[in-house]
Design a protein around this nucleic acid. Sequence first.
DNA 1: TAGATTGTTAATCGATTAACAATC
DNA 2: TAGATTGTTAATCGATTAACAATC
Lengths: 255, 255
Amino acid sequence: MSNSESAKERSRASAPIEKPDEMASASSARSRAARTYRRGNDYSAVSPAVIKRLPRYFRYLRELLHHDILRISSSELSEMMNVTASQIRQDLNCFGGFGQQGYGYNVKYLYSKISDILGVSSNFNAVIIGAGNLGHAIAGSNMFEHRNMNLIGIFDVSPQVIGRRIANYTVMDMAELPAFAKKRPIDIAILTVPKEYAQETAQTLANIGISGLWNFTSTELDLKVHGIMVENVHMGDSLMRLMYEINNNEQLNET
Amino acid sequence: MSNSESAKERSRASAPIEKPDEMASASSARSRAARTYRRGNDYSAVSPAVIKRLPRYFRYLRELLHHDILRISSSELSEMMNVTASQIRQDLNCFGGFGQQGYGYNVKYLYSKISDILGVSSNFNAVIIGAGNLGHAIAGSNMFEHRNMNLIGIFDVSPQVIGRRIANYTVMDMAELPAFAKKRPIDIAILTVPKEYAQETAQTLANIGISGLWNFTSTELDLKVHGIMVENVHMGDSLMRLMYEINNNEQLNET
DNA sequence: TAGATTGTTAATCGATTAACAATC
DNA sequence: TAGATTGTTAATCGATTAACAATC
């Protein structure tokens, strides 16, 4: 982040604009599942390619804030992120004019906007299904605080792990899930069960009425009929892409 | 996989072609790092979009084999995978003519070809850097056997975990890594350390001469100057995309 | 005001789909 | 052989980049 020092310095000069700080009103103690959220805008026309890039902007903007950089231009950001300035401006303008001509972008304001678009103020409730090593790793991560999510439970079927403590949670019996879901609405289920149980577990989750499934199994689950969004992690695919790149790049270097 | 029953039945009839079984000759006991691998073709002209899809073909073909389906047409596969038959034929033809007019594709042959392209026969040696929950989860997965990779060690800096047994491996001291690497060449490092240590650890890994880095930290590491391929997992980005989809899709349903 | 940088339109590039001739 | 299905070319669609007028 060394090449943004100039931006840092400039940010200490008085900023010509003072956009409202929307961060403060963003979070609420209650879950989105409790139907207290305010409906956002309709972004259905925004292209998938743009949406796929949003979380990366979120990460970089957060990083800028950590470095007390309060102002940035599309060209400065483009250098940092290794994309074109044009793309950045195009991407951001899908959601509204967040910048100011002659000035650039207010990092704090932009970050709050991107956060809102991504749903950080939704206060989702999540549960982990499968208390194996991966479920354990996810439970212990800081993934949730950073995104205003509430991990409200961890479930498993194995008597050997039910009742065990994992990252401040007591693993519950999968059989208790439907009753649990009635008391505390579940927005997102994180699926870390063995591949063989993925399909049936997904069906159970569909029945209790989740909104999204974060799928760590290598199986593909079609739950669109139930209106459930599925996001696949497919770590194995990622590893194979790496293997491919190593082989292919090395050849280029050697030839 | 219910809609492929017809393919299954047909596959039991005698197949008009008998492509050579290249699977048998694919694996070797020695590591690619030991420079025993045969150089592959140059696929540098193949578009990134195609390459990104290859692991998914790999998964589906493996699944077909498990179901004893030995023959498939692009249209049957397209239905299964929810893509166009045209795309499948285009994708596969980037690497050569793997099918046969009037017949379709021999699943076993196609699987072996895709495997080779992805580098499954490269016999990569891998180490895990960071023996936390995530490192533990990856070490215990079946990720490696399926891809002919050898997990040859797990390293950490914390005296509390060094010496502990994890999935049949004894966690080694990070300080021993350079010496270890001299004895057993490392192709791929799997980085599961806390974000704060990502950069310096990556530098250490670059110095011992790895070929690829599988990055689980949310930091982006530029090691292209060292000719090292980096593949980022960025689980957090995946979670945010899910959050976005839930918000945006629900709105559509409600309006 | 002049300089800087956005927002936005137009041009280019890349990826997907359609169509069909080649061929098993 | 006739039927089926690939391999491949051409047409369409979508995504990225370039350029510049608008404007702070």
